[in-house]
């Protein structure tokens, strides 16, 4: 949480909103874990992680888009992971580690635009950095180094599609609904 030392830009309302959204996502993630199990129970097992991963990274880009602050994406993702762990995640304390890694991955995309662009370009960038960072982590944490190169490339593409759908297409659809409702132009 050290990325948010600058408390001047963060108001009580922002913090509460971010956390509430994170908890909503924590619940949705928690339910989503059973989808992972459903995929893991089929011959698609080795792909379960990468097929389902996208849903877990949604909180970050959405929080970034909603609050438009440096660190919002990271914090949103991290808090959602924390909420998921408190609710009772099947991955235990590693949920928090994944949240940390995914938060950094998502945040990087927005950081690369210097926090100036909050549009589909920064979303695409965020999905790309998320894919690369989380994949790098899984090389070690999920033992991916034991896979052949062909398998790794397949997994990487599947992961990018999953993150692209959930963190890109779905997040864009949600932000469109938000924009249309005008709730952000208070």
């Amino acid at each position: 949480m050290q990325t948010t030392k600058k408390s001047s830009g963060w108001h009580l309302r922002d913090v509460i909103m971010l956390t509430l959204i994170a908890i909503f996502f924590g619940f949705i993630f928690w339910i989503w874990a059973f989808a992972y199990d459903a995929v893991a129970a089929t011959p698609l097992k080795p792909f379960a992680n990468d097929i389902t991963l996208g849903a877990w990274i949604m909180a970050g880009p959405l929080a970034g888009y909603l609050l438009r602050k440096a660190g919002a994406s990271f914090l949103g993702e991290f808090l959602a992971a924390f909420a998921e762990m408190i609710i009772g995640s099947q991955w235990g304390v590693s949920t928090l580690l994944s949240g940390l890694i995914q938060g950094i991955g998502g945040e990087l995309g927005f950081a690369l635009t210097g926090y100036k662009k909050w549009n589909s370009f920064s979303l695409v960038l965020s999905t790309l950095t998320s894919t690369i960072v989380t994949f790098g982590y899984d090389l070690y944490a999920s033992g991916y180094t034991s896979y052949s190169l062909g398998m790794l490339i397949t997994l990487f593409i599947i992961r990018f599609l999953s993150i692209g759908f959930f963190g890109g297409v779905l997040v864009a659809a949600i932000t469109k609904l938000i924009d249309k409702s005008g709730i952000l132009n208070r």
Binding site: L20, F24, F166
Partner: peptide, 19 residues
Amino acid sequence: FYSPQIFFKAILTSLNWSN
């Protein structure tokens, strides 16, 4: 869980409650 509406509603609620 992949319907944008469910997330949209969740965000609306979060905005209201946070205020």
